[in-house]
């Protein structure tokens, strides 16, 4: 067991747990943050993506021991922001959501991308999404949604 302290969705949290657990399981089991999904469990699909210090990571591949003193934001935390509202609206308007299982991860990937590059090219968007698998949409509508968010959110990122 180990004491793990970190910031979760803007609040400090502390837990006494086995350090050999995945961040994904801690988020889902201990904090009921079920917007974080497990699709593959091996860092390929991005359904479990969260922000760690503002950058996308796959929570299935991050041991909780590595999260000490980091800032973790899940879709539940991100959904409280203005940036989220812009992206959500764009995703809805462009039809970027089908089954929805990859969608929270796609939102995290979008935020991580735009946070670093407020005006990405189409190729940069594709690279930004390249670790997030979607089997429903063929990605086009997700790419368009991000382009719309860039336009709608003028200056937000």
């Amino acid at each position: 067991m180990a004491k793990i302290t970190f910031q979760l969705n803007g609040k400090p949290v502390q837990l006494d747990t086995n350090p050999n657990r995945r961040l994904l399981d801690v988020l889902r089991e201990d904090f009921s943050l079920t917007g974080v999904k497990e699709g593959c469990g091996e860092g390929e699909c991005g359904a479990c993506a969260v922000l760690m210090n503002h950058e996308i990571v796959n929570s299935c591949s991050v041991p909780i021991a590595n999260v000490i003193n980091k800032e973790i934001v899940t879709i539940e935390g991100f959904s409280q922001t203005h940036r989220y509202d812009i992206l959500r609206n764009a995703f809805e308007e462009e039809g970027a959501v089908q089954c929805g299982f990859c969608t929270p991860g796609m939102m995290i990937a979008s935020e991580s991308l735009l946070n670093k590059n407020a005006n990405p090219t189409e190729e940069e968007i594709k690279i930004g999404l390249s670790g997030n698998l979607c089997r429903c949409t063929g990605y086009n509508m997700i790419i368009k949604a991000i382009q719309r968010a860039v336009k709608d959110g003028d200056g937000t990122w």
Partner: peptide
């Protein structure tokens, strides 16, 4: 590095 992994893997 650009070719070897997705952004999420590169961050960790």
């Amino acid at each position: 590095i650009l070719e070897m992994a997705s952004p999420a893997i590169r961050h960790a």
